[in-house]
Design a protein around this nucleic acid. Structure first.
Lengths: 269, 269
DNA sequence: CAAATTATGATTGATTATGATCGTTTCTGA
DNA sequence: TCAGAAACGATCATAATCAATCATAATTTG
C-alpha cells in the first residue's frame, strides 16, 4: 500500500475515534508497526495529528470536523453570501420527510449545504445537486431520466414519458434570471425545458432570487407571477418590487445575510 | 497509446482513488514506468495533480472518506487487476460514436478509465459511472430516471414509463454474480431489476465476469446463457467452463492480466 | 524522402521506504 | 518496588522508487 494511502487511512481513522493504536492501523493497512510509527511521526510534525504513546490522537476535538469540513471550501463572490442566505430560508421551509423538487441552478445549489443534516425526499434535475445529496445527506434522491448536459449540470429528456410524472412534491424550488410584472423569466432554453416539466408536479412554487433579479429582464417567460407561491430574496429588494410581489398575492421572505465572518478554516494542505 | 490518452486515464484514475501508484497506471495504460513518470511530472507542473513518491495524488484533497468506503476499496482490490484487464477488453470492443449501455457494477465501473479518452454515447443506470464520465470524458451520458440507491449506486424507477425505452444501444455491458449452464445469475434484487430494464435495449449482450464467477452460484437467474453474445473473462477459466461457453455459441474473450505487449485476446466462436 | 525532433522503453547506479531485529525505555499490575 | 509486558528508537538488509542516460521508434519538419 502506498504511503499517502496509509496517511489518509490514519487521518480518517483518527477522526472517527479520538485515539487510535498502532496495532489498529497496522491491521488496517497491513503495514509493519515500524512503518506506522514513521507515518505517525511524519504526520505529527506536519500537525495533522498528535502523537501519543501507543498511537495517535486527533489534534482537533472531533466535534468541529464533521460539519465544518466540507462546506466552506467554496468561497465565491459576495453574491454567494446572499444566495446562501436565501437558500437557508428555502430549506427552513421544509420539514422532515417532506417531498420537494429542486430545479437546477446556482442559487438552488446552495440549498445542498443546509440539506446535509436533513432527511427529505428530493427530486432534482440537477446532476450536481443529486451528486452532492447522495454523498452528503441522508435524504432520498430521485432524478428524472435523460441526457446529462455538462454546462448546466441538468438531466433532460426530449421525451415526455418521464418518471417526473410519478413524483409529486409539496414544494418546488427554483431560481430564475429575472422577475417582473410579466412573470418569471429565464434565459437558458435548456433550463426552461427542465423547469416546465417539473413546474406542475408540486403544490407550491418557491422562487429563489437575489434582489438584483428584480431589475433584470430576460428573453423567455417561464410562467406568470401569479403561479408563484413564495419568493425568497435578500434585503436589497426595493419598495416598489416589494409592492409588486405583495400585489400578486405572493408570500415574501427576506433572507438576512449573516454578517459575522467567523469561519473556522480547516487545514487542507 | 497517445500521450493525451494516457493523461486522461491518469487523471481519471486519480479521481477515483485519491492516490495511485506508478504501477497501477502502467497496468492501466500498458506504458513503461519511465513514461508514466514523465507523464506525472508533466501533469504535476501543470497543476493537474500532485506528484508524490511512488505515484500521484489528486490536488484537491477529497473529503475524508468514511471508513466504510475504505473497506469497499480494500475488499475489491484483490481482483482489481483482473477486473481492469476485463474492462479494457470491453472498451476495446467499442468504436468512436457507438451507443452503448453500461449496467452498474464493480467490474463495469472499471471501464470508465478506458472510456475517459473516448467519445461515445453512453447510457448507464450507475450513478457512479455517470458521475465519472460526466467529469472525465467527452462522451454523452444518459441516465434513466428514478431513485438513487446509495449502496449499489444504481438509479432505479419502479415505473415502466422510462427514458430507458427511448435509448437503443449497440451493446450492453454488464457484470454478474455467477455464470453457469442455467444462465446468468445475480444476488441483488435491485440490480436484477435494473438489468432487466436494460437488457433488451441493445443488440449484443456482453458479460464481464472474472473467472471465479463460473464457480459461483447465486439465487436469482437473470437470463439464459444463450441470451449472451460475448463473455469477457480472465485466464483463470477452466477448460470445462470454456467448453460450456463455446457450446452455448458465445464469443469468449480472455483478458490477460499481465501487461504483455502482445494483446492476443483469444476469441472462440 | 531525408533530417531533425520528439516520444518511448530499457538500463544503470543512487536514493528512499520498508520490515525485521536489537537493546532500551515506559507502562502496568501485583 | 519489582517483574513482565508493551512500546519505543536505532540500526541494518532488502526492496521499491527514482533520476539520468542512451538507443530506438514514432513523428514532424524541411
Amino acid at each position: 500500500m502506498h504511503e499517502r494511502e496509509r496517511h489518509r487511512i490514519i487521518l480518517s481513522a483518527v477522526q472517527e475515534k479520538p485515539v487510535i493504536t498502532i496495532q489498529d492501523i497496522a491491521d488496517l493497512t497491513e503495514a509493519s508497526e515500524a512503518t506506522i510509527r514513521r507515518d505517525i511521526a511524519s504526520l505529527h510534525v506536519k500537525g495533522k495529528l498528535r502523537r501519543v504513546r501507543g498511537g495517535a490522537e486527533a489534534v482537533h476535538p472531533p466535534q468541529l470536523t464533521p460539519l465544518a469540513g466540507r462546506h466552506f471550501h467554496v468561497s465565491e463572490s459576495e453574491n454567494a453570501d446572499k444566495k446562501r442566505a436565501i437558500a437557508r430560508e428555502a430549506v427552513a421551509l421544509c420539514e422532515e420527510g417532506d417531498a420537494i423538487i429542486i430545479n437546477g441552478g446556482t442559487t438552488t445549489f446552495q440549498m445542498v449545504h443546509f440539506l446535509s443534516s436533513r432527511r427529505l425526499q428530493v427530486m432534482t434535475n440537477s446532476f450536481a445537486i443529486a451528486e452532492h445529496l447522495v454523498k452528503n445527506s441522508k435524504s432520498s434522491v430521485t432524478v428524472p431520466g435523460g441526457a446529462i448536459y455538462r454546462e448546466q449540470s441538468i438531466i433532460l429528456s426530449p421525451f415526455d414519458n418521464d418518471v417526473t410524472r410519478n413524483f409529486y412534491g409539496k414544494r418546488m424550488f427554483m431560481g430564475s434570471q429575472g422577475v417582473g410584472p410579466f412573470g418569471v423569466m429565464e434565459s437558458d432554453a435548456l433550463i426552461i425545458q427542465g423547469e416546465q416539466k417539473l413546474i406542475n408536479q408540486a403544490d407550491e412554487l418557491v422562487l429563489l432570487v437575489d434582489s438584483t433579479k428584480f431589475a433584470r429582464r430576460s428573453s423567455l417567460i417561464l410562467c406568470p407571477l401569479q403561479r408563484v407561491t413564495t419568493i425568497i430574496t435578500d434585503e436589497g429588494i426595493s419598495d416598489g418590487d416589494r409592492k409588486m410581489v405583495e400585489d400578486a398575492g405572493i408570500q415574501l421572505i427576506i433572507a438576512k445575510v449573516n454578517q459575522d465572518k467567523a469561519r473556522n478554516s480547516v487545514s487542507v494542505a
